[in-house]
């Protein structure tokens, strides 16, 4: 899922500036799961903004709403009435949700309430970690289901490097060496021979290096709707 972190309240207050009314709009999918921008966090942020604004001597109306997914227009359309009521929207969805809202409500300022950070999963109760770099050219079948792009600090395709020690990365003892994990996993699978295969240089054009990406699926298009 997409992992995000709430922005500092001071930063959000500076975005609000002199606005008289604000909608804090949450998303009940990824950002709810990583406890950054779901209904629960929207309530906390809205309450904090009301208290902070009051302490600053401002009278700001803060209303709250959370939709199932802010990245889909069917869901964000449901809060049109609330969006129309306010001066601006603080969206606690990921960057995709913020932009979906901005595309849908073109005349309304839509500002981010969270920093969208990475694609990952929950490792324990309060820890989320990166797992996928969305590079567009997956090699997980060769690397034991562990991504060298996201989990090796250098994104090496043929590792480990000389900085690996005791299963840790040279950048920090808190970071596991991605290639150590790959070797361990391949050993468990009885597929260590895969390490003998040299992974060729990656075509980074499928990643961010190729500019904004788009997928068009002609076979699922509905000509009558176009």
């Amino acid at each position: 899922m997409i992992i995000a972190e709430r922005k500092p309240i001071d930063e959000i207050l500076s975005m609000i500036g002199e606005a008289d009314s604000v909608l804090v709009a949450g998303c009940a999918t990824c950002v709810a799961d990583c406890m950054a921008g779901g209904e629960r966090e929207v309530g906390i942020l809205a309450s904090a903004l009301r208290i902070a604004a009051h302490r600053a001597g401002k009278n700001v109306q803060v209303i709250e709403a959370t939709v199932e997914r802010q990245c889909e227009r069917e869901f964000i359309e449901q809060i049109r009435e609330l969006v129309d009521q306010v001066d601006l929207v603080i969206s606690t969805a990921c960057g995709i949700g913020v932009q979906a809202m901005a595309e849908r409500y073109r005349n309304k300022p839509i500002y981010p309430g969270v920093n969208t950070t990475f694609l990952g999963l929950r490792e324990s109760e309060n820890v989320w970690a990166e797992r996928c770099a969305a590079c567009g050219d997956c090699t997980l079948h060769i690397t034991g289901g562990i991504c060298p792009v996201a989990r090796c600090s250098k994104s090496l395709l043929n590792g480990p490097c000389g900085g690996s020690h005791d299963g840790k990365c040279e950048i920090s003892d808190d970071v596991a060496c991605g290639w150590h994990l790959i070797v361990e996993r391949l050993e468990t699978l009885g597929q260590l021979d895969r390490l003998e295969v040299n992974i060729p240089p990656k075509n980074w054009a499928t990643s961010r290096d190729g500019g904004p990406r788009k997928i068009v699926k002609e076979d699922v298009s509905d000509e009558e709707r176009e």
């Binding site: 629960r40 309530g43 906390i44 309450s47 904090a48 009301r50 208290i51 009051h54």
Partner: peptide, 13 residues
């Protein structure tokens, strides 16, 4: 007791 229930009273000063 959700976190928001602990904060909301502070909105009332």
């Amino acid at each position: 007791l959700g976190t928001v229930f602990l904060l909301r009273p502070f909105e009332k000063g």
